[in-house]
Simulated assay, not measured.
Amino acid sequence: MRVLVTGGTGFLGQAVLRQLAEKPFHIGSLQRASSTSVDDILADGAATVETLILNPELKDVCAQVEAFSPGVVVHIAAVSRAKEDEEGIRAMLEVNTLLPSLLAQSAARCGAKGMVVCGTSWQTSSPENIYDPFNYYAATKQAAEDILVPFAKNGLNVISLRMFDNYGPSDWRNKVVDLVFNAVVAQEPLKMSPGFQKMDLVYVEDAAAAIVAATERAAGDPLDQLEVYGVSSGEHHSLRDLEALIGEIAEAAPPIQWGERPYRPNEIMEPNRKLARVPGWSPHVSLRKGLERVWESKRNALRLAK
Rank of each mutant, 00 (worst) to 15 (best):
H237A: 15
I130R: 14
A252I: 12
A63V: 10
I268K: 09
A152R: 03
A253P: 04
K191R: 07
P254K: 11
V185S: 13
E57H: 14
G247L: 15
G28R: 07
Q187T: 02
R162T: 04
L42M: 01
A253R: 15
L304R: 07
F68K: 07
V149K: 10
A47R: 00
G8H: 08
G119P: 02
T9H: 06
N157M: 01
L20Y: 00
E50G: 07
K59I: 14
S35M: 04
I76D: 06
D146F: 10
N272V: 15
A143M: 06
P150A: 05
A91E: 06
S233M: 10
M192T: 13
R277W: 08
G230P: 03
R299Q: 15
A104L: 08
C62Y: 12
E260S: 11
A301F: 14
H236K: 05
I159M: 03
F196V: 12
E87S: 15
L30R: 03
Y263R: 00
T9R: 09
M269Q: 06
A244E: 15
P56F: 08
E84F: 04
G247Q: 13
I53C: 07
D44V: 02
E94I: 06
T51S: 14
W122R: 10
N266H: 12
A43F: 13
L223M: 10
D200G: 10
G290F: 11
I249M: 12
L102A: 06
L99T: 08
P133N: 14
E57W: 11
A186T: 07
T6A: 09
I211G: 00
A208K: 11
A139E: 09
L148W: 08
F11L: 13
P189E: 09
M92I: 12
I53Q: 11
R303M: 05
G230M: 02
D206Q: 11
A214E: 03
G7A: 11
A139W: 07
Q31G: 04
S233Y: 10
P194C: 06
L99E: 05
A67R: 13
E128M: 13
P254F: 10
H26D: 10
L30Q: 05
V278P: 00
E270Y: 09
L148K: 02
A253M: 15
R293A: 08
A152S: 06
K298N: 04
V185I: 15
K298G: 08
Q105D: 03
M92E: 02
A139K: 01
